[in-house]
Amino acid sequence: MDKITKIDIITRPSKIEALKAALNEIGITGMTFSHVLGCGLQKGKTEYYRGTEYEIDLLPKSRIEIVVCEVPVEKVVEVAKEVLRTGEIGDGKIFIYPVENVIKVRTGEEGVKAL
C-alpha cells in the first residue's frame, strides 16, 4: 500500500483563504476545516467589556486537516509555511501523522483508492 499521511495545520483564521488557494494550486483538493480554540506562547489577551477587564485564555484558531499520498508531504509543508509565516507569535503549528488505512464508507474502497 502506498504511504498515506495526515497533515493538521492550525493557524490564524485570517490566513485560511490564502492557504486554501495555495494548497489548491499544488493539487490539494480535499480538506476538512474547523474553527478551534487554543493557546500557546500567546497566552491569550486582555479585553475590556463595559469597563471591566477580563482575560481571554483561548484564542480563535482555524484547523485544516489534509490527507495526502500523491502530493509530497514536504511540498504541502513548504507551501503552508510560506503562506502562514508572519514572524509573529501565533502563526500556528503543523502536525504530521502516518495513516494506517482509509476506508470510503459508501463503496468500501480502502487505501489510496478511498481518497
Rank of each mutant, 00 (worst) to 15 (best):
M1N: 11
D2C: 10
K3E: 15
I7Y: 03
D8N: 12
T11D: 03
P13H: 10
P13L: 08
S14Q: 14
S14W: 10
K15R: 14
E17F: 08
A18Y: 08
A18P: 06
K20L: 12
A21E: 04
A22R: 07
L23T: 01
N24R: 15
N24S: 15
T29I: 12
G30E: 13
G30I: 06
G30K: 15
G30Y: 14
M31R: 04
T32I: 09
T32V: 09
T32P: 10
T32A: 13
H35V: 12
V36Q: 12
L37F: 15
G38Y: 02
G38Q: 05
G38D: 05
G38V: 10
Q42P: 00
Q42L: 12
K43V: 04
K43S: 09
G44F: 07
G44V: 10
Y48L: 15
Y49K: 13
G51I: 04
G51E: 03
G51L: 06
T52H: 09
E53G: 09
E53I: 09
E53H: 05
Y54D: 05
E55Y: 13
E55I: 10
D57A: 12
D57E: 11
S62V: 07
R63A: 13
I64F: 01
I64E: 01
E65R: 08
E65T: 13
E65S: 14
E65N: 09
I66P: 04
V67W: 00
C69V: 11
E70V: 03
P72Y: 06
V73M: 11
V73S: 10
E74G: 13
E74Q: 15
E74P: 12
K75S: 13
V76S: 05
V79T: 12
V79E: 00
V79A: 01
A80Y: 01
E82C: 03
V83A: 05
G87W: 10
G87L: 07
G87P: 01
I89K: 15
I89V: 15
G90C: 05
G92A: 06
G92K: 00
G92Y: 06
K93R: 14
K93Q: 05
I94T: 04
F95R: 03
F95T: 07
I96Q: 06
Y97F: 14
Y97K: 11
V99Y: 05
V99W: 07
N101A: 01
N101S: 06
N101F: 00
V102A: 05
K104H: 11
V105P: 01
G108E: 03
E109K: 12
E109N: 11
V112S: 08
V112P: 08
K113G: 07
A114E: 00
L115E: 02
L115S: 01
